[in-house]
Design a protein around this nucleic acid. Structure first.
Lengths: 214, 214
DNA sequence: GTCTATATTTTGATAGAC
DNA sequence: GTCTATCAAAATATAGAC
C-alpha cells in the first residue's frame, strides 16, 4: 500500500529510457512494451474503462502475465504520469535559473512546456486527465498544483514589472495560459510537424493576441 | 440498443428545465435529482469510475431504485451532454445570424461560450471529458466536431478580412482559442464571480494578448 | 418510489506449472 | 515470460413485492 508512492522498481525503465537504450532483445514482452500498450489504451478508453484483460488482449498475452511485469494497474499509471511530471518540473527548474525579466522566463516556460507536451504527448495526456481517485492520482495532482502555483507567481512578477497587463487576475491569466498550452493534448500529433513552430504559435497568441496590429 | 440514440423520454426533464419549472413536490426523488447527483459524481470520480451503487448511496436509495428513473447509466450521461451541446449549438446559431465582421462574430461566440460554460458548468465538463467509448459518447464527439469546424471557418473568414493574424494556421488558432475557453471547466466556480467579467478576460487575452502595449 | 432478492458478467489479482 | 485455473469482489441490470 505504501508501495505505490515509493520510487518503485520501475525506475529501471525510466533510467533506460533516459539513456536512450531502447530494449533488450529477449523474446516476449518487457516492461516497456507493457507500459506502451497500457498508455495507449488508457488514452483511447480512459484509465478506469480499460481492464487488465483489454491490455492483455492488446499485447496478445493473458491477463496474469501482466503481473509478471508490474504489480498492478495503478503502477502503470504511476510510471506514466511520473514521466510527464518529471519533464515538466525539469522545464520549470531550468527556467527558474534564468537571469531575465519575468515575462521572458514565462514565455520560455510556455515554449518549453509545449515541447514537453509534444515529446511526451501520451504521458502528459494521462497526467492531465487524472482525477484523484487513487493515492497515485492524488500525488500527481499535488505536483501539478505546485507547478501551477509557480506559474501564477511568474505572472504576478511580470505584472509588477509592467510587462503583463494589470487588468487581469494573475491566477486567472496563468490558468488560461496553461489551459491553452495543455489543450494541445486534444489534437496535437507528431505528424503535424515541428513542436517548435507550434510553440511559436502558442506564444504569439498568448502574449500578443490573435488580432492583427496596424 | 437503438434506444440510446433516440430522443428518449427524458426530454420531459429538459423541457421542464427550459421552462424554469424546478420540480414537483412529491416525496422521494425524481429524474432531476437523480441526474444532478449522477453528474456530480461523474465529475468527481469520472463516468467509468462511478458505479450505480455509488450513485445509489449518494442519493440514499438502493441501486435498483435508480432504474425506475432512467434506463441505465448511459442515459444519465446522454441527458447531461445533450444539455451542454444544445446550449453551445444555440450560441453558435445566434452568432451565425449576426451581420458583422467575422472577428466580431468570433469574439461574440467566445463570450457566449464562456457564459454557457459558466452556466452549465457540470454538463459542459462532462461533455469535454467524453472519450467515445459508447454510442452515446460517439454521437457527442460528432456534434463537437461540427462545432469545431464552424469555429475554424470563422477564423479563416476573419483572416481573409485581415482582422486576424495570417501567420497562424486557422485550425490551430481555433483549437488554441477554444482550448483556452474550455480549460475553464478545470477551475471555474460560480463563487468566483461574474461569468461576464471572465468572458472579458478570456476575450482580452485571446484577441489582444497578455503583453502590455505602450 | 423504493425495496429485497437475484441473475449474470466482469473486474483486479494470485498460485503454481511449464 | 507465459500459461491455466481460480478467486472474491464489484459491476450493470431485472423481477416482483410493498
Amino acid at each position: 500500500m505504501t508501495r505505490e508512492l515509493d520510487p518503485g522498481p520501475a525506475e529501471e525503465l525510466i533510467r533506460r529510457m533516459k539513456e536512450g537504450r531502447p530494449r533488450r532483445g529477449r523474446p516476449g514482452h518487457d516492461l516497456e512494451a507493457v507500459l506502451g500498450a497500457a498508455v495507449q489504451l488508457f488514452i483511447e478508453r480512459g484509465y478506469e474503462a480499460t481492464s487488465m484483460d483489454d491490455l492483455a488482449k492488446r499485447l496478445g498475452i493473458t491477463k496474469s502475465s501482466i503481473y509478471h511485469h508490474v504489480t498492478g494497474k495503478q503502477e502503470l499509471l504511476r510510471i506514466a504520469v511520473d514521466q510527464a511530471l518529471n519533464a515538466l518540473e525539469e522545464a520549470m527548474a531550468e527556467v527558474e535559473l534564468l537571469q531575465a525579466p519575468a515575462i521572458e522566463r514565462l514565455e520560455m516556460l510556455v515554449r518549453r512546456s509545449v515541447i514537453v507536451l509534444a515529446e511526451r504527448l501520451s504521458y502528459v495526456t494521462l497526467l492531465l486527465r487524472v482525477r484523484g481517485n487513487t493515492a497515485v492520482e492524488q500525488q500527481a495532482l499535488l505536483r501539478r498544483k505546485v507547478f501551477d502555483g509557480k506559474v501564477t507567481a511568474l505572472v504576478v512578477e511580470a505584472q509588477l514589472e509592467g510587462a503583463i497587463r494589470g487588468d487581469v487576475i494573475a491566477a486567472n491569466a496563468a490558468r488560461l495560459l496553461f489551459g491553452m498550452v495543455n489543450s494541445l493534448i486534444e489534437w496535437y500529433s507528431p505528424k503535424r510537424g515541428g513542436a517548435a513552430e507550434l510553440a511559436d504559435t502558442v506564444a504569439a497568441i498568448a502574449f500578443d493576441g490573435l488580432r492583427t496590429r496596424q
